[in-house]
């Protein structure tokens, strides 16, 4: 085997060299250096390809699988899983002495548990948002953006409205949680998400986006376009 043949083989499948190639590598310092350089690049490629896998992926796959063919049950099972996840987060927060930002982390957890909310587009008229906000003790004075998703979800030990809408900066999630009081504004960052929670007259609301800047922009938008009635 000559150097050209060796390098061709090394570039094709660096980890499965033939006996002939291994013998050549042992005799040729230049090809050995080339092989080491390829291995080094491949290690870096492997590290770059190994993106983070979302937590709970296997459980979500198995949950959907177990409820295959039982759509009504599937909805309740999904809801139950969200409740359990939320309770687990709350319990973890309580036992680990977590700071008051755990509601913000709870909101991030909720968004991560419902990735479909960000990929699903259901045409919802602004009337529905007005109605939901009205029931939460607020008034929408101007549209906040195109509403893509509104669902009533299990949040904590109750239910909350999960709203996804479009902003100039990208998609934003707003979660309105009634009958749960928080004392102050809090923020949290986790798994590439940023969340801010604010007290509201009938509970609290959370804004979840991909960056602190975007959360701040959406927070300004919400405060400008939704008036909370005392």
């Amino acid at each position: 085997m000559n150097c050209l043949e060796f390098r061709r083989e090394k570039l094709q499948d660096p980890r499965r060299l033939s006996g002939e190639a291994l013998a050549h590598q042992g005799e040729c310092p230049q090809c050995l250096a080339f092989a080491r350089s390829i291995d080094e690049t491949d290690d870096r490629i492997g590290a770059a390809l190994a993106v983070r896998v979302p937590e709970g992926l296997s459980e979500r796959i198995l949950l959907r699988h177990r409820d295959f063919g039982r759509p009504r049950l599937a909805v309740w099972a999904l809801a139950a899983s969200v409740v359990l996840a939320v309770l687990a987060v709350v319990a973890f927060g309580r036992f680990s002495g977590a700071p008051s930002d755990h509601y913000a982390r709870l909101a991030i957890e909720h968004v991560m548990m419902e990735p479909k909310s960000l990929t699903t587009v259901r045409e919802s008229d602004s009337g529905m948002l007005r109605s939901v906000v009205d029931g939460f003790g607020g008034t929408v004075t101007e549209p906040i953006g195109r509403i893509r998703y509104i669902e009533l979800c299990p949040v904590g030990d109750g239910k909350g409205w999960h709203i996804v809408f479009e902003t100039p900066e990208g998609l934003a999630t707003l979660i309105l949680v009634p009958e749960k009081r928080i004392r102050a504004v809090a923020i949290a960052n986790a798994s590439g998400w940023n969340a801010l929670v604010r007290p509201a007259p009938r509970g609290y609301y959370a804004i979840i986006t991909e960056s602190p800047d975007m959360t701040a922009a959406v927070d300004r938008l919400i405060r400008k376009r939704i008036i909370w009635n005392a």
Partner: peptide
């Protein structure tokens, strides 16, 4: 099978579509 290959499947899906949400949906 899900526990053994779920992570590799997700990474493969991610690099096919370059969207983490779409990748999870693909794996599902």
């Amino acid at each position: 099978t899900v526990r053994a290959y779920g992570a590799d499947m997700y990474r493969y899906a991610y690099w096919l579509c370059r969207d983490r949400f779409a990748a999870e949906e693909l794996v599902q």
